[in-house]
Design a protein around this nucleic acid. Structure first.
Lengths: 415, 415
DNA sequence: CTCTATTAATTCGAGGCTCGAAAAAAATAG
DNA sequence: CTATTTTTTTCGAGCCTCGAATTAATAGAG
């Protein structure tokens, strides 16, 4: 806010603006851009002409024949898929996937592999990621597309600079410098992001009507995750990716959590916690390594069928999440919530206690109870968010600056 | 972030920048401004010349005789105290105070009065504030100073627009439109702010070395309050002033809170909660209306003297605050903490259990334990923060725009 | 088939802004 | 009184946006 401003910052900001409306709409005439941005027609003309000659935009001479109106027909402009490509990597428990995505957001090629992350060292994990990314970089080189950005998403915590994997449940190792490893290998700027933050990015891009300026995405699976959008921006911690909702305290000195502490929300609402409670194993039982989706589904079925430990376990989970959201809402006010991940399949079981707990907290005091939507399939969201994150970076930090030749010869060329 | 930029926005931003370094330093030559802002000497010359002819700055031809160096001597510039004035109002339990403050930040006149806020209606409170502000507006008119901003601080919650008192412990009434009342009466823009947010503003202004980009101010008195600075900006809720730290949940279905809910942190750490626990009154005892500082001091003395219910009460308070901070830090990472208010006098009693609880939560997991500083006297901070808030608004929103004649004839003139 | 109305997009000059280089101003040192 | 040093201002080059005027490209009317 208190930064110096120069003359050409104005153009940069307005180029950003034009690119941002085009990223949302895919196909817009100069007149429509004028209307959406509020810029004057002359400015839009100047900016789009620059972007066209830079190869960042292209004219879409559509065969749609919308020419039913009188007057000079509009020329649709869109992001040029060949302007650049980004690589989006998703690292999860025992699985690695990555995709090469063109500038318009379409997947060109994708790669998947299974790997035993828990048994691997940090170096081995970094090497696996590097190998897969290498394949995609080669692919990009072969197609003569430059790759100005790589984004990696994983479950866990990164530093605030989004460069290092600080901690993740998918490995025993901490402080894996994934960003530096990839950047060193390919000379391409990298961000390492929390998966739930990427879910939030994807939700905002997908349904801006419902997920607007402020909302919360909660991932329910083996552990808990959260991504928050606050005032239109992804909310991250000051030193890390932040948003460790699952490790807010629910019950002081309560159930044993996977993190080694006690009483975390996750220790009541993670799959392992629900499983533990449903099997009457006691709060001190160390968390199971992983629980199959089918087993959780069976638990949910049992809970729906009859009152018993299973149902009580899901209720306790709902209660923990409800109190946690209440505490969160006390700090930053209620906002729509997306319940994402396999746990969303059992949302019918946890919703009641969740709302009941929420009503008992300050979050519900001055404002109406927020809406809850569910989406059990998190992976597409993480992939889409990760790609969007990388593309938005290119929009804002690279193509918003003039004097960049985007369609460079080398696939590895970096500004 | 995605706003349109025009040519003159550049000048506005750079005027802001110049005003912000001058507000921090009080006395700076053009050369020093050049160094601190990074602007070119020509630009600084142009901007300061505008600001001087607008009457916003003044030359301080000092008798300090710093002329021991060779070369043309520097001319010190400073904010012109007569450029404008603001009114800062602090409304607290049974007391109202307000001050007329010149543009350089010095108090011109201040007013105080005692009133029985709990017995008053919202209209009566608004009328009292209006009357006191009226006196100061008259004073400003008499001195031929225009008042472009009023800021009101109080303990409680406002709407996100900082216009309405939504709830406050100082009155039984809710939704008091203080902002509209004052704006209607005087035609001056008004913000209504949470007192702890103003404490945070004041701490940042007072000690930017320690309270930098990220820190938390916790007010311990009858109830609890919190103000947060996140990435250099005051963090407010999306719909309200937010930061209701005291009403994050500590123990599900726990002790009765002043807000009517159960288990809030405040229900363990507010004065009434400590009192209640120290007197073995039980968690369900309705909160006392108010407890004299002397009584709390006596309680603290007893707690220091011997192990017993008093000491346990303070320990429970520390524990509640510690778990609460831990949950907060799970979301946005650890940051320095200021413990402000009368409760800071007993910080020696609560610090141990606080740190112990904090160590049990995720907040302390990846980062070192943050620092804790105390300041028992909150009123000066609230006053200073409130004044600073109003002045900063004038800097940024009014004087950063050119073409404003600041030293208007009428004291009530508003842009 | 030509002409006119209509809508889209571009061009051009006016007016801002920052910056670097050069000039002017104001003091000390000798 | 002159040279030196440091601060501050002035001036032209180079961006940028915007409004008004101009050019481009179509559908419909006669």
């Amino acid at each position: 806010m208190t930064a110096i401003a120069r003359s050409d910052d104005v153009r940069r900001q307005n180029r950003r603006l034009v690119l941002s409306v085009l990223r949302r709409s895919e196909k817009l005439s100069r007149t429509e851009i004028t209307a959406r941005t509020g810029l004057s027609p002359s400015t839009v003309s100047a900016i789009t002409s620059d972007l066209l000659s830079d190869g960042i935009l292209r004219e879409l001479r559509d065969g749609d024949a919308t020419a039913t109106r009188r007057g000079r027909p509009q020329v649709a402009l869109g992001l040029n898929p060949d302007a650049a490509a980004v690589i989006a990597v998703v690292l999860s428990l025992n699985a690695l996937s990555a995709a090469l995505i063109d500038y318009a957001g379409d997947v060109i090629v994708s790669e998947q592999s299974r790997l035993d992350t828990l048994a691997m060292s940090g170096d081995e994990i970094a090497a696996s990621v590097r190998a897969m990314v290498g394949t995609l970089v080669d692919e990009a080189t072969y197609r003569d597309m430059r790759v100005p950005r790589i984004a990696v998403a994983f479950q866990g915590i990164t530093d605030a600079g989004a460069r290092t994997l600080l901690w993740s449940p998918i490995t025993r190792e901490i402080d894996i410098p994934l960003g530096d490893a990839l950047e060193g290998a390919f000379g391409i700027p990298v961000t390492v992001e929390n998966d739930c933050n990427m879910i939030a990015v994807a939700l905002k891009a997908k349904d801006p009507g419902h997920y607007g300026e402020n909302f919360i995405a909660v991932l329910l699976s083996h552990g808990l995750g959260m991504g928050m959008m606050v005032r239109g921006e992804l909310f991250t911690g000051t030193k890390s990716s932040g948003g460790e909702f699952g490790h807010m305290n629910h019950v002081p000195d309560g159930a044993l959590c996977r993190c080694g502490r006690r009483g975390c929300i996750e220790a009541y609402a993670g799959n392992y916690a629900i499983w533990r409670a449903a099997r009457n194993l006691g709060d001190d039982t160390p968390p199971a390594a992983d629980i199959a989706d089918a087993d959780m589904a069976a638990l949910a079925a049992a809970a729906r069928a009859a009152d018993g430990p299973e149902r009580r376990a899901f209720h306790a989970a709902g209660r923990a999440i409800g109190f946690g959201l209440g505490s969160l809402f006390a700090i930053l006010d209620p906002a729509p919530v997306a319940i994402v991940g396999q746990g969303a399949l059992a949302f019918d079981l946890i919703e009641g206690p969740l709302l009941e707990a929420l009503a008992k907290t300050a979050g519900g005091q001055h404002h109406p109870i927020p809406s809850f939507h569910t989406d059990p399939d998190e992976m597409p969201l993480i992939r889409a968010g990760c790609a969007m994150r990388a593309l938005t970076f290119v929009d804002r930090e690279i193509f918003a600056r003039g004097a960049v030749s985007p369609v460079a010869g080398s696939g590895r060329a970096v500004a």
